[in-house]
Design a protein around this nucleic acid. Structure first.
Length: 1007
RNA sequence: GCGCCGGUAGCUCAGUUGGUUAGAGCACACGCCUGAUAAGCGUGAGGUCGGCGGUUCGAGUCCGCCCCGGCGCACCA
């Protein structure tokens, strides 16, 4: 290399080369810089500034679903808050007025549970409910303070100094307001019904509070002895015709099957399927012959399981023929009927279903239809009642003696323990035909993880099929369920299947049991008149309690000293019941009822939000968007819809965006108990909030979101690429002042116009993906743009212009103008995702004098704003040029590996092209093609049959193109490295013999 | 059991109404550059598009069946 022997020449001109300069650090150093930046935001009151800047703009409110004020923030919160902030920032930049008011869900069992645990498991008898509630409030307040800082560390901007809390009197009063409204409209009922009961939590549970877990239960086949049959009973006739009829009446039984033996004491009937075929079977057990009735299809299976000997089918008949059959309860000896039910199937069991209306939903329905007694001998702890109470609850006749000791055995026993005892005694007495263990999934309490039981209790319900006769809200006179489904159809669901999911849930859901038997919550404002048992709950009492709670908080319900019942009642009602004992009832609201009321308690009651409801054409909703984990389809989304549609006729939201769960590297659901969810604040310190946010924005969150340090660190590659690409752009703007140097669009060079056209395509695609909330698609576009369009295609080519052309030349200013616009574009597109980094980038970018203090105050880029102008023709001509470049690169690479070439500037290229391509290349211009390919020259061979030309090879993918790449024989310019052929052969040769003409003119007398 | 979603390169994902040789990033290999330098550029390898069958001139794309994964509903007695 002759050039290398002239180091002095090189250093002579080095200072005239305009190399990039920037303070923007390559290393992100997020852990250190992010807190500093947030501090700066606090100082300039960025959130308030954004609010002020959007004053009067169209409102677009994302209503925050309140996280539970319990425990430290984890990755799941990070995903949730990160995406919420992303959407809010995006909509804000689009020009909407988007206040973000975070909130917390503060009541509820988990907190009460934790507080009780700290007190030794149960409430000390000396402790008042008021004191307990005080501790719960302290507990939740503590975690709100912690979580607030943890959420802020993710970079979430919002009204953190004034969030909403479900424990605030305003909130509580609004929950009561929703209840009053429902009550007034006839949705509320208090009824005795079977409910899911958690004996662990000692409370009724809603569907949303159940989790299915596997457990092992006994599966038992029990003989229920036949007793008297009705006069017209066909079965009776069947038996009478058999020779062994006497034996059958004596030793015959209905064979039932159950997996919950503890419900047998509550048995009041056996249900059969009218249309199924049943058989009367005889078999030998020990030295005894017995007879049973069961479904024909199941006989073989049961006989095999129970290892019955000498099985004989004596008769076959239809289920309907069993009408009128009676049996005697095997240990309570009560006379019970056989009934029919359509849910009886022949999949399992015996086709004869043990029916206990006190312990099953379907049983309860059957009981209602058949007017059966409802027996529920189990208390709130899941234990059988004791003594006389047990006898009473079992509804046994007064003369019942318990001579066989069943009641003695059962009393006070927990139902799970009772299972074993009952099985043993049934076996001992000969009623048990067979028992085995089965494994099945069974509903469990989501908090205590104890199996749930069905208990019939008196509870408060919201009736889902109620028809509101208010013509303004419900002109078509539809049921609430129908109106909910209709509303679902009017909202936008992301992903789209959310609509189907919640629709099917609404279609199938039962009435909503809203009462809970706990302390930590908002009381259901109902009274009971002791003498008459009358329940007092009406418009007047509701209004009174609501008003007092608004002033003093819900503690008044528990403050017997300062707030005796007389004071809580409206004066006229208090007067009316003078002399009677009126008591406050002890139920509180399901926490879901509280959270579900936020459309009113927050969106409707907060002064800042109440004026910012969403509307679009005919559609009106309380907020623009709800964004939560997809488990909220059966949680917050659903309860919000129910309460909002029932009381206002409007949807709580327009858009409903859901994310899947956060999982660990093994794909297992993250949970605190498993310890596979790391604390969010730790993650922000170790990885950086922006990197975590970047990661969340880059992956498809509609399927389970794996979150590990390794994956997020891996995402750092993409983050760094964006950072470095920006750094390259901004590094070339050290002497660029947009106010003075910006080149007008019509004066931009074609390559610069081309890259802005590509940027226009990016803006369109990126924005469209953001509008669909497909952030990962948007981010992929950006990554692609940085990697391919900018880094490989654009920046690499404009270096010569930026470094070597005259500082103030149009060609250099043109490139700088593009770089400046691109850098600006990047800060804006990245702003919703990497909130700190984008703002940092913004700081290092040359700005117009009137620029705002933060990128978060800037508007979202638009294709229509005249900067990023799409130019299809330009795109196409460059597509051809880049295709040619790819061919040259391929050949060049081969030559390099053969040791025949080094850098591109040391080679020249000759192309042969057919009649279709040649004119297009000519039109593109060979000097520009030379520039584009980073070689020292491109020539176009005019000859016809290029394949015949020696040394040419056909292009690989571009048909009609041949090429020849050879080392240049020219001398390289020591300043720009190009071998232009004019080095030293120009009028400045005396002074700059080692420079090309261009460089010599640029340098002039500066070196 | 019923339903929904997904299965494309080692990993994360694109693949428009069916239409050239299925793409991108990361990772990997090999080079180049040393003027984006704890950077940058180029080239390459890597895919029976879950499997089988069908419709079609043509299927990653449409239809049917099956396998695998995730989720929801129901699992009731």
């Amino acid at each position: 290399m002759t050039d290398a022997s002239k180091p002095d020449a090189k250093s002579r001109y080095k200072q005239t080369v305009l190399l990039p300069q920037t303070e923007f650090p390559m290393k992100a150093d997020l852990a250190q810089r992010e807190p500093q930046r947030r501090k700066k935001w606090d100082e300039i009151k960025l959130y308030d500034a954004i609010r002020a800047a959007r004053k009067g703009a169209k409102a677009w409110v994302l209503h925050d679903g309140p996280p539970y004020a319990n425990g430290d923030a984890h990755t799941g919160h990070g995903l949730n808050k990160g995406l919420k902030d992303l959407v809010v920032k995006f909509r804000t930049m689009q020009g909407y007025d988007c206040p973000y008011v975070p909130g917390w869900d503060c009541h509820g069992l988990p907190i009460e549970h934790k507080v009780l645990e700290d007190l030794g498991g149960t409430k000390p008898p000396t402790m008042t409910a008021l004191e307990l509630r005080k501790r719960c409030l302290e507990y939740s307040t503590g975690f709100i303070a912690k979580q607030r800082e943890q959420f802020k560390a993710v970079g979430v901007l919002g009204r953190w100094d004034n969030p909403y809390l479900t424990t605030s009197p305003t909130y509580e009063a609004n929950v009561l307001g929703v209840f009053s409204e429902l009550h007034k409209r006839g949705y509320i009922t208090r009824a005795k019904r079977p409910v899911h009961w958690s004996w662990g939590a000692q409370s009724a549970l809603a569907e949303a509070e159940l989790e299915y877990e596997d457990r092992t239960d006994p599966s038992v086949y029990v003989r229920f002895p036949l007793s008297s049959c009705g006069k017209d009973c066909k079965f009776r006739e069947v038996v009478e015709q058999l020779p062994e009829s006497d034996e059958i009446w004596k030793n015959g039984a209905l064979l039932i099957w159950t997996t919950t033996p503890w419900t047998l004491p509550a048995n009041v009937a056996v249900a059969a399927a009218e249309k199924a075929e049943y058989v009367l079977v005889s078999y030998a057990r020990g030295d005894k012959r017995e007879y049973i009735v069961l479904a024909g299809d199941l006989m073989k299976r049961v006989a095999d399981k129970a290892k019955l000997q000498d099985v004989k089918v004596l008769a076959t008949f239809a289920g309907a023929d069993l009408k009128g059959v009676g049996y005697s309860h095997p240990f309570l000896e009560t006379a019970c009927p056989l009934v029919f039910a359509d849910y009886v199937t022949l999949e399992d069991g015996t086709g004869l279903v043990h029916t206990a209306p006190g312990h099953g939903k379907e049983d309860f329905a059957t009981g209602k239809k058949e007017k059966l007694p409802v027996v529920c001998p189990v208390n709130e702890e899941g234990k059988f009642f004791t003594g006389e109470t047990l006898k009473k609850e079992l509804q046994l006749p007064p003369h019942f003696e318990d001579s066989r000791g069943w009641l003695k055995m059962l009393e006070g026993q927990h139902v799970l323990k009772a299972n074993k005892l009952i099985i043993e005694k049934l076996k001992a007495e000969g009623w048990l035909l067979h028992s085995e263990d089965i494994r099945h999934s069974y509903p469990h309490c989501w908090r205590t993880h104890t199996p749930v039981i069905f208990r019939v209790t008196e509870q408060w319900f919201v009736q889902i099929d109620h028809v509101d006769n208010d013509k303004t809200l419900n002109p078509a006179g539809k049921s609430l369920r129908a109106r909910l489904l209709e509303t679902v159809g009017q909202c936008r669901w992301f992903p789209g299947w959310g609509a189907n999911r919640i629709s099917s849930m609404i279609e199938n859901r039962p009435d909503w049991c809203i009462s809970r038997q706990r302390y930590w919550g908002i009381p259901i404002p109902a009274y009971r008149v002791k003498e008459t048992g009358e329940v007092l709950c009406n418009e007047s009492t509701n209004a009174r309690v609501t008003e007092l709670v608004l002033k003093h908080g819900s503690d008044i319900w528990y403050d017997d000293v300062n707030w005796p019942v007389e004071k809580l009642l409206p004066p006229d009602i208090a007067a009316k019941y003078q002399g009677k004992t009126v008591t406050k009832m002890a139920d509180i609201f399901d926490v879901w009822f509280e959270a579900g009321s936020s459309f009113k308690a927050v969106m409707g009651a907060d002064p800042e939000l109440a004026t910012r409801r969403y509307s679009e054409g005919d559609f009106k909703s309380h907020s623009a968007m709800y964004l939560e984990g997809d488990d909220q389809h059966r949680g917050w989304f659903q309860v919000s819809l129910i309460l909002s549609v029932a009381t206002t006729g409007k949807s709580p939201f327009r858009d409903c965006l859901t994310t899947a769960f956060v999982v660990d590297e093994k794909g297992e659901k993250g949970s605190k108990s498993k310890g596979n969810m790391w604390p969010l604040d730790q993650g922000c310190r170790d990885l950086g909030a922006d990197l975590i946010r970047y990661y969340f924005a880059t992956i498809d969150t509609s399927s389970p979101v794996p979150v590990t340090y390794k994956l997020i660190q891996n995402a750092g590659e993409g983050y760094r690429k964006i950072r470095n690409t920006f750094r390259a752009l901004v590094g070339n703007l050290f002497d660029f002042d947009p106010a003075h140097h910006r080149v007008l669009p019509q004066n931009l060079l074609p390559l610069d116009r081309w890259v802005l056209s590509r940027a226009g395509a990016l803006v369109a695609d990126f924005t469209a993906a953001m509008e669909r909330y497909e952030f990962h698609v948007a981010m992929r576009e950006l990554t692609q743009f940085c990697n391919v369009t900018l880094s490989a295609q654009y920046i690499d080519v404009i270096k010569d212009r930026l470094y070597c052309e005259a500082a103030t030349s149009n060609s250099r200013r043109s490139a700088q103008t593009a770089c400046w616009l691109l850098a600006d574009l990047m800060t804006r597109l990245l702003a919703p995702v990497c909130v700190h980094t984008a703002d940092e980038m913004y700081d290092f970018k040359p700005k117009a004098p009137d620029s705002p203090a933060s990128v978060h105050l800037r508007p979202w880029p638009k294709v229509s704003d005249g900067v990023f102008v799409r130019d299809e023709a330009l795109d196409q001509s460059f597509a051809l040029a880049f295709a040619a470049k790819a061919e040259i690169d391929r050949v060049l690479d081969r030559l390099r590996k053969e040791g025949k070439a080094g850098k591109g500037y040391d080679t020249i290229v000759t192309l042969g092209a057919n009649a279709e391509i040649a004119p297009r290349l000519h039109e593109f211009g060979l000097p520009r093609l030379t520039e584009l390919c980073n070689v020292s020259g491109v020539a176009l061979e005019a000859a016809g049959d290029h394949s015949a030309l020696q040394g040419y090879e056909p292009a690989d993918t571009l048909k009609g193109l041949w090429l020849k790449v050879v080392p240049s024989a020219e001398t390289a310019c020591v300043r720009c490295y190009r071998r232009t052929g004019d080095v030293g052969k120009h009028k400045h040769a005396a002074r700059h013999a080692e420079l090309c003409l261009r460089c010599a003119e640029v340098v002039g007398d500066r070196a």
